[in-house]
Write a protein that binds this DNA or RNA. Structure first.
Lengths: 356, 356
DNA sequence: CTGAAAGCGCTTACAG
DNA sequence: CTGAAAGCGCTTACAG
């Protein structure tokens, strides 16, 4: 009997007849509980529970002309980045709370096109889209706007400064946290290693840089700064150059965990013990940071996921868009809380900061 | 006019009347092209194209009692691993070729339960499931089997040795490739750093170890071996111990890219230049390897995705399961092909192998 | 507060 | 080879 139950899932009709009501009443219990007398409601709910009834996504989608799904573009930059999996994981975990499920999609191409968006839309597979790695000349916002399809972006929409349907981590606040932590830990001068402003994400580079400038200046610890791109080799060279200008007991706040890793390498090269001779804080809360026991500014992945999902949900509901793009607060994770103690101290080249 | 077209998507009725046929004929053109006269078919197809018609996923799902979707569990091990994003990316890219879309799901918990599987199933959201990180005592295969729901696993199903619905990389072949490459590159003795057999994935550890044993023995280059878990700190210590037993011009084949990174660190610690004094090959083709310019055995992610998707598709179609679990062939990516030259040589502590 | 009816967009036997 | 009909499982006006 168990297997026959499993084979054919209960429908709304099964629940209705089991509870002795019409199926419209069951639908009301689920969608407009207030319309139904409490006693009836409880009886229906009990049967829903007993039969394990859940409305069919397909039937509901067909009737409501809404898929209850959000397309999530996964392209090379997303999959190849350190934070991609964290964003995806948070979106996946948070989606049910917003009554939607995610549908990832993407070709193997680097540069996103609208072809896949068009196809998903035509098949009514999703109601809205989420994407990241926006850039100038990005064809996606234009196409979505033109077709009146809700969307939200992780990261600023450079191609459309007037749009507000985006969310990002507050990089300025993040670097303030980093500098404050380094000062509180007893380091002296705090330098900065970030990105050049002409990179594809200038506002992010700018925010983080200014966060360091503001905090370091107001605390009177501002030191030298440098820029590098997001590749390890050049970053190590840039870190090396920066270390030339710092002394023992100084520190470096970094625009990313990868850059912080480069600082670790540059420090190892000259025999500096990170956490004792040199303070380092990364940015992202990525696997790289955890693995190397790095102190890092953690992006608020769940908040970001909630904001993005809420943004598309509101657009769907009544066309509402946020009044402004959202810059969400990060948190600082000292090395000890990002990983096991054993990993922090057990090998020489890239020890974690242990100074209090 | 453009926007009104965009607003209401074309249905099968629009295509039918535009082509001057009944909607059943349109359905036949799409689902059983052979049943329709070529001239009629072409006319219908032209209208499909002109109107941008695609069958509604919801309507089709409702009618066919099939969601056309595969649930993909994303749990902590998946999101936190180096290869998780690569597997996910490959599945996402390959899904359309198998006429399905993916629906990622998962709680924030480490240990998977069947609750989410049950919910997805009841809502008819997916027809089948894909998951990874199988382990002994895993409740998922039992539940899926009991409920006759198709599934396939990335990685062996340790809890059910009799099941064949899984695929994995051929670790034995991978380590043969690694050893052959090191020998061809002119290194002498080839050591091995892998995992202990009591880890959660003993067959994987065993396969890779034996691949090294077999290749190194038959080529007469077998050296010392060691084991470590997948944490960087202990891995560096294990690598260090292994290097004690190797001399200049020797090499280490590794069970993972992370372990290879640990070898890089241990080598840097004692001033060995990897690629000149010491050969190193990693395993996975992960971001870690690319970033550090490591030579690595690349997992066949697209083949794995195709195999898994085909496996659930066949189960859905006629209950067919593979005759055996699949061990798919990896490929070897020398450092020069995994990243830009600049990253390979520009910093000292962890240079890439450059020896021919 | 509850019930009978229509319809979302498809596909699949079933006649012709 | 093509057409009229039924029905997948829901929800939402609409009457009662």
């Amino acid at each position: 009997m168990r297997s026959s139950t499993a084979r054919r899932r209960a429908t709304i009709i099964d629940v209705a007849s089991a509870a002795g009501v019409s199926r419209q009443t069951v639908s009301n219990v689920l969608n407009f509980p207030d319309r139904v007398r409490p006693r009836t409601r409880d009886r229906v709910l009990a049967e829903v529970d007993r039969l394990g009834y859940r409305p069919s996504t397909a039937a509901r989608g067909l009737r409501n002309q809404r898929a209850g799904a959000v397309g999530l573009e996964l392209n090379l930059p997303t999959c190849g980045s350190d934070i991609g999996p964290l964003v995806l994981g948070a979106l996946t975990v948070r989606a049910p709370a917003h009554d939607v499920h995610l549908v990832p999609f993407g070709d193997a191409e680097v540069f996103p096109t609208v072809a896949a968006y068009r196809d998903m839309t035509r098949r009514h597979l999703v109601d809205a889209f989420l994407f990241a790695d926006t850039h100038s000349g990005d064809p996606r916002p234009d196409w979505l706007l033109e077709n009146e399809i809700p969307f939200a972006a992780f990261g600023r929409l450079y191609s459309h400064p007037e749009l507000t349907c985006w969310a990002d981590v507050d990089g300025h606040r993040g670097l303030e946290l980093a500098v404050e932590h380094l000062v509180a830990s007893g380091y002296g001068t705090v330098g900065y290693l970030g990105w050049p402003l002409h990179l594809e994400d200038p506002a992010v580079a700018e925010d983080r840089h200014r966060g360091w400038v503001d905090a370091a200046t107001s605390l009177g610890v501002a030191g030298p700064s440098g820029v590098t791109d997001q590749q390890l080799g050049p970053a190590v060279e840039a870190a090396d150059a920066l270390l030339d200008e710092l002394g023992p007991g100084d520190a470096v706040a970094c625009a990313s965990d990868l850059i912080a890793l480069a600082v670790l390498y540059a420090a190892a090269r000259r025999g500096l013990a990170v956490g004792r001779d040199l303070g380092v804080v990364g940015f992202d809360g990525s696997l790289v940071a955890r693995r190397h026991g790095l102190t890092t500014v953690v992006q608020p992945y769940e908040d970001l996921a909630d904001h993005l999902l809420r943004t598309v949900h509101d657009q769907l509901l009544d066309g509402t868009v946020p009044v402004a793009g959202a810059l969400l607060d990060p948190t600082l994770a000292p090395s000890s809380s990002t990983d096991r103690e054993s990993e922090l101290t057990s090998y020489t080249p890239v020890p974690a900061p242990t100074r209090r």
